[in-house]
């Protein structure tokens, strides 16, 4: 399962647009609504993984275009450190990723989703082969 935290501006907007355009993506993607990517911190990411998510994506507005100014930019730093943390634990840093989307363009978030599910598959198959 992939937990995708989506901000209420561009990310949820883009996910709605993708729906209206009947674009298809991996059913494992589960969207969690947040006001802004800035709402998401290590707590949320770790909780999702502790509760059985395979990976976590955070999707916000374009860098520099956060509707709250810089929430997504602050979360970028949080997520970067978390990627490092997972690497230090021997996991794939792709266990968490941070993306952007544009509300008017459904293909932007679908691109994010496809990337995340491809990365998750790669990660899971590596894990299986390690065992």
């Amino acid at each position: 399962m992939i937990i995708a935290f989506a901000c209420e501006n561009c990310a949820q907007g883009s996910a709605n647009t993708a729906g209206v355009l009947r674009m298809k993506y991996d059913h494992r993607i589960k969207i969690v609504r947040v006001p802004c990517a800035g709402r998401v911190g290590p707590r949320q990411i770790i909780e999702a993984l502790n509760n059985g998510a395979d990976s976590v994506a955070i999707i916000g507005c374009c860098f520099g275009a956060c509707h709250y100014n810089d929430g997504n930019l602050i979360t970028l730093r949080r997520v970067k450190a978390m990627k490092r943390m997972f690497e230090e634990l021997g996991f794939d840093p792709d266990m968490v990723n941070m993306y952007t989307a544009r509300a008017a363009e459904g293909d932007t978030i679908v691109g994010d989703f496809e990337d995340m599910s491809a990365k998750t598959d790669a990660m899971l198959s590596k894990e299986v082969s390690n065992e």
């Binding site: 602050i74 970028l76 730093r77 993306y99 679908v110 691109g111 994010d112």
Partner: peptide, 18 residues
């Protein structure tokens, strides 16, 4: 550390990501 340099990259589907 919210203003320290962090790497971002452009994606093939025309967005930016970490």
């Amino acid at each position: 550390a919210g203003q320290m340099d962090v790497d971002t990259k452009a994606t093939e589907w025309t967005t930016d990501m970490l």
